[in-house]
Design a protein around this nucleic acid. Structure first.
Lengths: 117, 117
DNA sequence: ATGAACGTGTACTATGTATGACACACTACT
DNA sequence: AGTAGTGTGTCATACATAGTACACGTTCAT
């Protein structure tokens, strides 16, 4: 699993090559945190930020919030709530899919999405 | 969603009717917390305990840990880790199943478990 | 009727989480 | 040469989490 801060920094620096609005300070301002704090986050000096801040940062860097949250060691609270509503069913389903290959999970997603079964 | 403390207390008191080893004090001792603390938990004076304590309490009361964790507003960390390993796939799957009837989810569980598809 | 067990009130504490504020040195234009 | 912008070091803080410790009045069993 890649490091949260390092990854965020790499993505930001890549974006910055073509758009100098992606300086640490400007991104920090748009995300709504202090530059010093974002600096520490990117270098791993502090733990990844809260869920809300992580999601705002992901959006700012045009990344998938769930992936960013995963790197931050978290799971989106809306997913957690879905699980909490029916804990037995979801717990069994998820543990069942622990070792399943990506393909198998994706097949399940498709089947459920299309509903034709 | 039922209240964590209230539910725990009811279950414990039911168990106690046939086995007086289920006093608050004795359960607290076996679970590894102070009686005063368990008392406060059961009455909702304090927030539900940590994941580890919640699971030990569930086991002690012969309940499903995932259900107890759900009532405590949490999701088992082992489930979270499974999701974090493949955040996109699991996020899509779970959101897909948010509104699905129990029956549909259980059908998916069975299909995946039996693997014949 | 007394000692053990019971449930609970009050007070305290240790650790973690999630930042903010400010100052500093460096660089990049204009 | 100066000013605007940049990244970072240090210090402080507010709040939440997850409990412990002890004392008190009550009840239960012998």
């Amino acid at each position: 699993m890649p490091h949260f801060g390092t990854t965020a920094r790499q993505i930001r620096e890549r974006l910055r090559e073509s758009d100098r609005r992606f300086s640490l300070r400007q991104v920090a301002r748009r995300v709504g945190v202090e530059p010093a704090y974002l600096s520490k986050i990117e270098r791993g000096v502090v733990a990844p930020p809260s869920e809300a801040t992580t999601v705002r940062l992901a959006r700012e860097l045009d990344q998938d919030p769930d992936v960013f949250l995963a790197m931050a060691g978290k799971v989106s609270s809306d997913l957690q709530e879905i699980i909490r509503r029916r804990p037995k069913l979801f717990a069994e389903l998820i543990r069942q899919l622990r070792e399943a290959p990506d393909e198998a999970i994706f097949r399940v997603v498709r089947v459920v999405r299309d509903g034709d079964w």
